[in-house]
Nucleic acid binder design. Structure first.
Lengths: 205, 205
DNA sequence: CTCAACCTATCTACGAGTAGGTGAGCAATG
DNA sequence: CATTGCTCACCTACTCGTAGATAGGTTGAG
């Protein structure tokens, strides 16, 4: 279940801590950061709230860890993409897949949910949310640049603006489709948006 | 202070009740339905929480009133549009203006925020949120139909799908831009999306 | 023996909701 | 036309539950 041999730096036990963050992430995507309590996670994991406070003294600490992990995953995926020189259209599909799994589960992306809750979040979390969303848009933007350069996308205007619009559409589609239309509507929406905004040139049939 | 002469049907005093709903709406668009308390509204209006409970026994009642009022405004606007046979491109701009004012204020649309909070809302509110979003999409859809018929939009695919995508993009743009890019980014995003998805034919210069 | 990783027990706060009271305004009636 | 009675709109003063957080004890592995 747990492949970590802790051979690396330190990070103590990590199993329980990991599970807490996992559970918190699931909750956030479903009910938001303010929608769950330590008690919820504790009962799910068979712990007490005090034990969670041991790992994350304040809820904001848990929130920050959550975002940082998500951000790190994004950076790693981004590095992977650059290392493998992955096809831009495939990159785009990969990024959409994140939203897609969120939509399939009837939840939202971490970043989207936290953007909605933004005004109620602790300062530290707000800054992290900003950088997380910024990173998403950067990814989209660089994918578009690369895709246009390689002739895989057709796109006249500014790439950063298009990236911003695509990120908006993705997060919006997840949000809207979970109350109206469901996962099918989500897929049709983003297919349409991607098609219209950056006109991907599929490899061929 | 109170301009109501109660000469009409009934609806009792309505002034305070109105103010409560107004205050609640402002709060919801900024911090969400779960982000404010009766105490917040009470102190803003110089009342006690008990007084608000008098008008809205449970918070869910306030929430439902909130949504119903919003829905009614939408229906009225829709009726107005049909009565005046307003230009489809102008209709589209009008609907965008709602999101625009929300984005300008750094908040979200009522429907968008409630969609994000969906899983934590009382059942009664959930149903209303569904119909509200449904109505928005219907409006967009009929506007697109009409616009295409009148040659004001260029749009090949299914209108309902495009409407869904547009609604998603609008709500997403409001949500994303308030944590990254601000109002300017919002405007650029929706301009781009509208342009790409339905290619409005402007009257002329 | 020490320390990480839990636990029990408790505190404080705040939020939703309730109970019951007050006073202004109006309506009917003796 | 003054009295009685009712209701609306608000109040004070709570209850009850829950959430975040703390203090300090226990356990088990190295």
């Amino acid at each position: 279940m747990n492949t970590a041999h802790n051979s690396s730096t330190r990070q103590q036990n990590s199993s329980t801590r990991q599970q807490i963050v996992d559970a918190a992430e699931r909750r956030v995507t479903q009910v938001g950061f303010n929608g769950f309590s330590y008690a919820d996670i504790a009962s799910e994991l068979g712990l007490t709230t005090a034990s969670i406070h041991y790992h994350f003294p304040a809820k904001a600490d848990l929130g920050v860890s959550l975002i940082e992990r998500c951000e790190q995953r994004l950076r790693e995926a981004l590095a992977q993409v650059h290392r493998l020189d992955e096809d831009p259209v495939a990159q785009m599909r990969r990024l959409c897949a994140v939203s897609d799994s969120a939509a399939r589960a009837g939840g939202m992306c971490l970043s989207g949910m936290l953007a909605a809750e933004f005004a109620t979040l602790p300062r530290h979390m707000q800054e992290r949310v900003r950088t997380l969303i910024h990173l998403e848009i950067q990814w989209l933007s660089s994918t578009l640049h690369e895709g246009v350069a390689k002739g895989r996308f057709v796109l006249k205007g500014d790439k950063t603006e298009a990236a911003h619009a695509l990120a908006s559409a993705l997060h919006g589609a997840v949000m809207v489709s979970r109350v109206h239309g469901g996962h099918e509507a989500f897929k049709r929406s983003i297919d349409l948006i991607i098609e219209q905004v950056c006109q991907p040139v599929e490899s061929e049939a």
